[in-house]
Design a protein around this nucleic acid. Structure first.
Length: 400
RNA sequence: GCCGGAAUCGUGUAGUGGCAAUCACAGGAGACUGUAAAUCUCCCGCCUUUCGGCUUCGUAGGUUCGAGUCCUACUUCCGGCA
């Protein structure tokens, strides 16, 4: 059975960008790579075959959601998430750390980088998570039952799920938290929780030797503070993690710089995963500064909501102007949707509320981001990264 | 022909003597970054960038301090009876 392994192949002159391969029990990931998110062990609206066709090399599922339903024991009984969801390629599982924020403090604040930016819609929401230094108490969003997550339970869940790459349980703070809170969050929760996650992970890997060994990535926090990001990266970088998740509240204006702080402190021979990042400009910045993999719900969610990426920016296909536009939404795209359907047809599917709208839009958006990162990987190999970055972003922000 | 009922935003409606325009749908625009999301927000009579101004409850009269609301006639529609 293949052990987890990361190899760097090519480094870009004048930047921290690099290509490599992550080897897992379920196959190899060529990096940099975009990893689509299938929270509940399914990428909404796609079959695993459709997801593979889009070029996805791996999928990321979520411990919190699968713990609530169907329960990680069920997935364990099924033989692990790969078998359960009929996905033969590598898998990641998130720890539930994001839900500490999105179900907790995220309920009432305007948060950057969380998908929730509207105070009015937030006002109607109910807080469902409460943090203390031992862990987080959650009220299930499904039935209101109380549950408590700890680093140990998160790892037990993630071992039941059986993903190739797991993440340490962390606290995602927001840019609205004070400096003092960020310090306290690192010292009292994210870092101690990383220690506990790693210990439990090692115990479970030894205990469950009948299953493929799993890898664990430590998650770095510290918001937009250089001293905290470096401190967090240094602390976690010295531990026996297989790689790192670069988490959290990242100020978009200097996201590359923030990633660089962490990359400079982290061991070079371990992979760096950007949690929840997929905007094209962010991807370029992160890769340039040392990021290897990305996951994000955005391509899928945004697609289901009617917005599609194009070489010339993202636009809503629900707009009236597309009602009689019989050209592909992005003529430069090689995806199944753009090869076979027109903007007018997609517009019709969305306005009719047809389910195929979700499938075709998701195929396109996932392909668009996967392909972008694939192109970036090739550009690192042949040394044209900066040319690609310049030309792509010039087109992308010329607006469709 | 007679009897009864109805007429409010593009549509269906709320409104039962006191600032008309509630709710839904349709329509328009936008948002979405480790998924409480096939979701959410805003606009949706006219004018105005805003503040705000103006108009309007089938038509014409009447009662009343005041009428979408009560009365009369007419028009149209829906029932029922001939």
């Amino acid at each position: 059975m293949k052990e987890f392994k990361f190899e760097v192949h090519r480094r870009l002159d004048g930047a921290l960008a690099r290509t490599g391969t992550i080897t897992t029990p379920h196959g190899v990931i060529e990096t940099p790579a975009f990893i689509p998110v299938g929270t509940k062990a399914t990428l909404k609206a796609l079959t695993p075959e459709q997801l593979a066709d889009v070029g996805a090399q791996a999928v990321l599922v979520n411990a919190y959601h699968l713990y609530l339903r169907p329960g990680h024991e069920i997935i364990d009984q099924a033989g692990g998430v790969n078998t359960f969801m009929h996905w033969d390629y590598p898998t990641f599982s998130d720890s539930g750390g994001f839900q500490v924020m999105s179900l907790g403090v995220g309920f009432k604040k305007v948060i950057d980088m969380t998908g929730v930016t509207d105070e009015k819609s937030l006002a109607r929401k109910e807080k469902l998570a409460w943090i203390d230094d031992d862990g987080v108490r959650f009220k299930s969003h499904i039935d209101g039952d109380m549950h408590k997550f700890t680093p140990e339970l998160s790892m037990q869940i993630q071992h039941g799920i059986g993903a190739d790459i797991t993440f340490a349980f962390d606290e995602l703070t927001t840019l609205h938290h004070s400096y003092d809170y960020q310090v306290e969050s690192l010292d009292k929760r994210t870092h101690p929780w990383a220690v506990r996650s790693l210990a439990e992970h090692q115990r479970l890997n030894a205990l469950r030797s009948h299953r493929p060994p799993q890898a664990l990535f430590g998650v770095i926090q510290g918001a937009d503070r250089e001293d905290l990001r470096r401190k967090s990266a240094k602390f976690l970088g010295a531990m026996e993690f297989d790689g790192f998740g670069l988490g959290g509240a990242l100020r978009k204006e200097n996201i590359g710089e923030i990633v660089r702080w962490m990359s400079e402190e982290l061991p070079e021979e371990k992979p760096r995963h950007m949690l929840g990042i997929s905007e094209p400009d962010d991807i370029f910045e992160c890769i340039e500064n040392g990021a290897d993999t990305f996951d994000c719900v955005s391509p899928a969610r945004v697609g289901r909501n009617g917005a599609l990426y194009t070489r010339f920016g993202r636009a809503n296909v629900t707009r009236a102007q597309y009602r009689d536009d019989f050209t592909p939404f992005d003529a430069t795209c090689d995806c199944y949707t753009c090869r076979n359907y027109t903007s007018a047809y997609l517009h019709h599917l969305f306005s009719s509320g047809e389910l195929l709208a979700n499938t075709l839009a998701t195929i396109h958006n996932e392909r668009f981001i996967v392909r972008l990162v694939d192109d970036i990987r090739a550009s690192i190999t042949d040394g044209t990264f900066f040319e690609l970055k310049k030309s792509f972003l010039a087109d992308y922000y010329s607006k469709k």
